[in-house]
Nucleic acid binder design. Structure first.
Length: 425
DNA sequence: CCTCCACCGGAAAGCCGGGTCA
DNA sequence: TGACCCGGCTTTCCGGTGGAGG
C-alpha cells in the first residue's frame, strides 16, 4: 500500500513527473485485458469438444438447405454455454458462405429482449425490416418476420439466451416461433434455447417444450483441472510473459471449482487479482493478490445483496453494526433491543422478535452474519451471532438507503446509545 | 437431579397486493 | 365489476430445550 502512495506522484529531481508518464512507465501486466471478460469468445474452447461436435452435427442440415431441429441447452452459470453456441454459430455462418447458403445466426439475450413483441421485432429488424419499437400488434410483426424471411430466402438460427426469462412474460412468442416453420417455404427458423435453470422446464407449456427441446445438450460444470486449462489458455493472451507467479492459476481454478465449477468466476478472479497487482505496482501477480481479489469479490457481492434487502433487514443490520463496535458477538435479545430503538428513530413500525429471529436466519444464509445457537445455562438459550461482512463497507451501503438517512446524522451518538440500551433491560 | 432462563422454531391464522374468472 | 384465490409476509400462540446454578 505504501508503495502505491509513494510512487503515485513522485517528485523527480525537483520537478513533477507527468502523471501519465508515470502510469505508462509502470510495468505492464496486461497484454489484453478483454480476453478475460465474459463477453469474449476464444478461438478454442477447451473441454467442450463433445458439446461442440454434438451441436455441429445437429445444425449441419442448415448447410444442406434444410432446417435443423430445435435445441435446448442447459447447464449452470459459467459452464461455457453461451461461448460454445456463439463459437459454433460463427463457424456455421462461415461455412454457409462457402457452401453458398444463406444461413444467418441471430443472437438474442432474453434478459434484455424480454417480450414477444421485442423478440419478433429484433428478428425482423435484423433483416432490414422497419418495425417500430412499439405500436404494431404482435401478429403484424409476426407476419413481417415471415414476409422478410421468405422474401430473402434466409435460414435463420435464433439463439435465445437465458430463455427462462422469456417464459414468464412471453410464452406465446415461443409457441409462435416453434410453429412458424410450417408456414414458411423458402426459409426457416431454427431455435436454440439456453437456460441455466433446470426447473424452468417444468413451467413450460407441454406443446412448447416438446417442439423446443427436440434435442438437448447438457453442459456439466468444469472440474479444477479443466478450469486450469481454460485459465492457462486465456492468460497466454491476456498477460505479458512471466507475470503470473507460480500457483496463481491453480489457486483461481481451485477456488472456482469449489463453488460450481464456474469458469466465469475463475476468470473474474484472475482478472481482479491482476488488477490489484497492477494497482499495487507489483511486477507480478502473486498468490496473495488472488486472496485479496477473492475478498474483494466477496465484499462486492455482499454489498450487492445487502443493497436489495428490505428495510427491516437493513435496520437490523445497522443495529448489528453498532453492536459490533462494543462486542464482537451478540445475542438475539440484544440486537432486537437496539433494532426497536432504531425503528422508532427511522419512523417505522418494528417487527416482532419472532420475525426478527427469522430475518437473522436469512442473513445467516446469505453469509452476511454468522450465527450459532448456544446455551448459556441459567441465562437461557439464544442465538449468538457476529458480523461476517466488513463493518465499514456494510454501513456505507446501508446509509445509501434514503429511509435510513435519519440514522446517519447520529453517528457516534448511536454507539453510546446502543451501549445504554444494552444495560437498560 | 431439578429449575428455570431466554430464546428457538413449528403451526396457524391474518393481512395485503396482485391476478383470475365469471 | 366484484367475488375469489394465491402466495408472501407478519403476528400470535405456544410447546420445547441445553446447561449453569442451586
Amino acid at each position: 500500500m505504501e508503495k502505491a502512495i509513494n510512487g503515485e506522484y513522485g517528485l523527480i529531481s525537483g520537478g513533477y513527473m507527468n502523471i501519465f508518464e508515470n502510469l505508462l512507465s509502470s510495468v505492464n501486466i496486461f497484454k489484453n485485458r478483454d480476453v478475460l471478460r465474459h463477453s469474449y469468445t476464444p478461438e478454442k474452447l477447451p473441454h467442450r469438444e463433445e458439446q461442440i461436435n454434438q451441436l455441429a452435427l445437429l445444425l449441419s442440415p442448415l448447410l444442406k438447405g434444410g432446417a435443423s431441429s430445435n435445441i435446448f441447452i442447459y447447464g449452470k452459470t459459467g459452464t461455457g454455454k453461451t461461448a460454445t453456441v456463439n463459437f459454433v454459430g460463427r463457424q456455421l455462418e462461415e461455412a454457409s458462405k462457402k457452401a453458398k447458403q444463406n444461413v444467418v445466426v441471430h443472437y438474442i439475450n432474453c434478459e434484455i429482449v424480454d417480450t414477444a413483441y421485442r423478440v419478433l421485432a429484433s428478428i425482423a429488424r435484423r433483416f432490414g425490416s422497419n418495425v417500430p419499437m412499439t405500436g404494431w400488434p404482435t401478429d403484424q410483426v409476426y407476419d413481417e418476420v415471415k414476409k422478410v424471411l421468405e422474401l430473402r430466402k434466409i435460414r435463420v438460427l435464433v439463439i435465445l439466451d437465458e430463455i427462462d426469462k422469456l417464459v414468464k412474460k412471453a410464452e406465446e412468442a415461443l409457441y409462435g416461433l416453434t410453429r412458424i416453420n410450417s408456414e414458411l417455404k423458402n426459409s426457416s427458423i431454427s431455435l436454440i434455447g439456453i437456460s441455466n435453470n433446470l426447473k424452468f422446464k417444468n413451467f413450460l407449456d407441454a406443446r412448447v417444450l416438446s417442439s423446443l427441446s427436440e434435442e438437448e445438450i447438457v453442459f456439466p460444470p468444469y472440474n479444477a483441472e479443466q478450469l486450469e486449462d481454460i485459465l492457462l489458455q486465456r492468460s497466454k493472451l491476456a498477460f505479458e510473459d512471466g507475470v503470473l507467479e507460480e500457483g496463481v492459476i491453480q489457486l483461481c481454478a481451485a477456488i472456482a471449482a469449489q463453488e460450481h465449477g464456474d469458469a466465469r468466476k475463475a476468470l473474474d478472479l484472475l482478472r481482479v487479482s491482476a488488477e490489484i497487482a497492477e494497482r499495487e505496482k507489483d511486477t507480478k501477480v502473486r498468490v496473495e493478490h488472488v486472496r485479496k481479489a477473492l475478498r474483494k469479490i466477496e465484499t462486492d457481492y455482499m454489498i450487492e445483496t445487502v443493497r436489495t434487502l428490505p428495510v427491516h433487514s437493513k435496520i437490523l443490520l445497522y443495529s448489528m453494526s453498532l453492536l459490533s463496535e462494543i462486542a464482537e458477538k451478540f445475542t438475539t435479545g440484544e440486537v432486537y433491543c437496539v433494532y426497536k430503538k432504531l425503528c422508532s428513530k427511522v419512523g417505522v413500525d418494528s417487527l416482532t422478535q419472532r420475525r426478527i429471529s427469522d430475518l437473522i436466519s436469512e442473513l445467516d444464509m446469505l453469509g452476511v452474519v454468522n450465527s450459532v445457537i448456544i446455551s448459556k445455562g441459567r441465562y437461557g438459550r439464544t442465538r449468538e451471532m457476529k458480523l461476517e461482512a466488513d463493518r465499514d463497507a456494510l454501513r456505507k451501503v446501508l446509509e445509501e438507503d434514503y429511509r435510513l438517512q435519519s440514522l446517519k446524522k447520529f453517528g457516534g451518538d448511536l454507539k453510546k446509545f446502543a451501549n445504554l440500551k444494552l444495560f437498560e433491560s
